[in-house]
């Protein structure tokens, strides 16, 4: 009996770090492996919304995976780190548990209450309700995580070891090319817009009222503006998205 492989989901908040510490303890007892999962949500939230959601608790670290790797090394435990993107969070935890073939999931519960809980829900409850293997939930404050917090502070001091993204090089040709493209679209739009606008002012009201196929010229100008707007947007989208994904 015992455990072979344990999955812990971390988000950098105290409750999840407590869960991680518990996972390390259990892993040492049973000689199990620990898989640490971090999920980056991909919901279209505004920066300010994210800021307000993050207010539930005090964030310990933004580099959870690095921290758990380091802490595991010190404790003499094999820590496998997994980073995933997307949503729903609970669904991804469950899926990862199956992929990794774990026999225990440990989660932190930050004990959100009232409106927060109503709004964000409880990931741990969903995982408990749907997991095939045992699930252990560690409530905030149960574990003493001062050693992890200390380690986190040390790690935060070190420069982040992310793969340095290549700094974009200044190239005046690219700027010129972009300017030609954006400028052309904007110019076409401006010409159509200001033409339609001029027609719709008092000095030109006779031209505006000139009937074509039963409708005044100004109305046709309006429809033309709408249709060409859709077309111009298409052209823009095609170029911008052409080479990516």
């Amino acid at each position: 009996m015992g455990f072979r492989k344990i999955l812990v989901a971390v988000d950098g908040y105290p409750a999840s770090l407590g869960a991680f510490k518990k996972a390390v303890e259990i892993a040492r007892t049973y000689g199990a492996e620990v898989a640490v999962l971090q999920i980056e949500e991909d919901v279209p939230l505004l920066p300010a919304e994210k800021m307000m959601e993050a207010h539930i608790d005090e964030l310990v670290t933004s580099r959870s995976l690095e921290l758990s790797k380091e802490y595991g090394k010190k404790a003499g435990i094999d820590v496998k780190v997994i980073r995933k993107f997307g949503e729903p969070v609970a669904g991804i935890i469950l899926q990862t548990a199956e992929e990794e073939d774990v026999d225990l999931i440990i989660l932190g519960d930050s004990r959100k209450s009232g409106l927060e809980k109503f709004y964000l829900g409880s990931v741990s409850q969903t995982v408990m309700g749907n997991a095939k293997c045992p699930v252990m939930v560690i409530k905030k404050g149960w574990m003493n995580i001062s050693d992890i917090v200390e380690l986190a502070k040390e790690i935060e001091k070190k420069p982040e070891k992310v793969v340095k993204e290549e700094k974009p090089v200044y190239d005046s040709e690219v700027i010129k090319e972009n300017f030609r493209f954006s400028g052309t679209l904007f110019l076409i739009l401006s010409v159509i817009y200001f033409f339609a606008a001029t027609i719709a002012s008092k000095p030109f009201k006779n031209i505006a009222a000139y009937g074509i196929l039963g409708l005044p010229f100004a109305v046709w100008c309006g429809f033309f503006l709408i249709v060409s707007g859709i077309l111009l947007t298409r052209i823009y989208i095609n170029r911008v998205g052409g080479s990516e994904t």
Partner: peptide, 13 residues
């Protein structure tokens, strides 16, 4: 919907 984006157990999206 916000809650679902965290707590749904299957990938309905």
């Amino acid at each position: 919907f916000r809650k679902q984006s965290r707590t749904a157990s299957s990938f309905f999206v």
